[in-house]
Design a protein around this nucleic acid. Structure first.
Length: 422
RNA sequence: GGUGGGGUGACCGAGUGGCUAAUGGUAGCAGACUGUAAAUCUGCCGGGCUAACGCCCUACGUAGGUUCGAAUCCUACCCCCACCA
């Protein structure tokens, strides 16, 4: 538990590592990097593993570099992808790179002896000339070597362009560049990055005659076999604008029992004894889900801050707490309840439920709303809606005259406050 | 460039002239059970109108055509895959 590697191993971060890494870490602080894709302007929970990996690294006195792929984003990594990815505009990539950089700063400290560094490979990749690249980099790799890589193999069926085929060389170039300019000796990443990382190690060895290292994290899948990081409403993002702290909290709270322990180890900094205690408590009373609560609270606080986490907890308790029945009273003052505003003039007079549900976004069409009601899946102010013809009367509305609202719910979990603007 | 195979709903994958909004599976949504879990069972699952029976629109790579009628036949084009050059 005293050094980086054994900590990472104990917490389930290590899928694979190059053999010499342990010895190298014995000898003193190292500089390491992880690359992040700028495919969107926010990271999602899937990127938490590498982010936490870097954070642990820093906690053990090593220096982390977060590399945003503003240059590689132009090309697209075939690893783990089934299809060619669309090309993004430079402006888009740069915007995304900025957003991602901001989020990473939550996990890393940019002060002190081993202050974290942010780099964008656009700075060195975009100015590169093809002839120089082929001479200095391409020379070191045989086609046979490249063809053996998993990322290429798995795409031979569906097709891979020369562009994506070249990706591993560009990533190798990154590693070599960071080695040369910043003394970076270790690259970490998802297990799908193994091939790219070893290509980088190879390049450093050939051009510098030095030994670099690699470590890859396991691919996180859920116990049900679905992709980690999805919820009812799609991807779970770290950006509070895309995924509200409440929904973020809910995502973690709804973790499958079988995944909780692993998630606590991967996504929190809690000590292993603390985690074991929580798991023991959970085994004693699974229905209370103490481990889930701890997990959700911790991760939300880390990503959105203490205050937002508290609010998410309060909201969740108000909505799901032991309000045994269908009382609507505790729903009024809920802080961070998802909200939607609709101008009254956009709704027919008399407020037919069907139209209201469509306006709220809970139903995707009138037909959908109708079907939902017939399946008893919609609730108004805590009561099931039992008629598709229901007209919502004024007495069902709450709140001040200028912002009357009603509480809609779809299923067990989707609450929404619909505010009617005059 | 040649030869062969192929493009079906979110995905996989049946379907070769009317019974097809299109079998089945997955994913998704809702309901029951429970613990805001898993598993299981049930219903829904292109859009609009309807209390409902039902009606209408859009859809099987794209554009035309044949036919009373086409995802299914014909023509051209686009794209993908395999092998050959």
């Amino acid at each position: 538990m005293s050094d980086l590697l054994s900590t990472l191993e104990a917490r389930g971060f290590v899928q694979d590592a190059t053999p010499g890494l342990a010895e190298r870490l014995q000898q003193g602080p190292i500089t390491a990097y992880v690359g992040f894709d700028p495919t969107a302007d926010s990271l999602h929970v899937g990127s938490l593993v590498p982010a936490m990996g870097l954070a642990w690294l820093q906690r053990f006195g090593h220096t982390p570099i977060a590399l945003v792929g503003g240059g590689t984003g132009m090309v697209g990594d075939p690893s783990g992808k089934r299809e060619e990815r669309p090309v993004m505009s430079l402006e888009q990539i740069d915007r995304n790179a900025q957003g991602i950089g901001r989020q990473l700063s939550r996990f890393l400290s940019f002060e002190g002896d081993n202050a974290a560094r942010m780099r964008n490979n656009a700075d060195w990749l975009r100015g590169i000339h093809l002839m120089d690249f082929l001479r200095d980099i391409g020379k070191h790799f045989s086609i046979g070597y490249m063809l053996q890589k998993d990322s290429v193999q798995s795409r031979m069926e569906t097709g891979i362009s020369y562009t994506e085929f070249s990706y591993m060389l560009i990533q190798a170039y990154d590693f070599w560049h960071l080695y040369r300019t910043e003394g970076c000796e270790l690259q970490m990443g998802g297990s799908d990055q193994w091939g790219n990382i070893t290509a980088g190690i190879e390049l450093v060895r050939r051009r510098q005659g030095a030994q670099a290292h690699g470590l890859v994290f396991p691919l996180i899948t859920t116990a049900t076999g679905t992709k980690f990081g999805k919820s009812e409403s799609g991807n779970v993002w770290l950006d509070g604008e895309r995924t509200s702290p409440y929904h973020f909290y809910q995502f973690w709270l709804n973790t499958d029992d079988r995944d909780v322990e692993r998630s606590l180890k991967l996504f929190t900094f809690l000590r292993l004894e603390r985690i074991e205690a929580a798991m023991a408590e959970h085994r004693g009373n699974p229905g209370r889900r103490p481990a889930h609560r701890l997990l959700a609270r911790e991760v939300t606080a880390m990503v959105h801050g203490e205050q937002a986490a508290d609010e998410a907890v309060r909201t969740s308790e108000a909505l799901f707490g032991r309000t045994t029945g269908d009382q609507s009273s505790p729903l009024d003052g809920v802080p961070d309840m998802p909200e939607r505003r609709v101008s009254r003039s956009q709704l027919p007079a008399g407020l037919p439920v069907i139209d209201v549900l469509v306006a709220s976004g809970l139903a995707s069409s009138k037909a959908d709303a109708r079907r939902g009601i017939q399946g008893r899946g919609f609730y108004l102010n805590g009561e099931p809606i039992d008629s598709v013809e229901l007209q919502i009367g004024e007495d069902a509305l709450q709140g001040p005259p200028e912002a009357r609202f009603l509480i809609l719910r779809k299923g067990k979990k989707n609450y929404l406050r619909l505010v009617l603007e005059p």
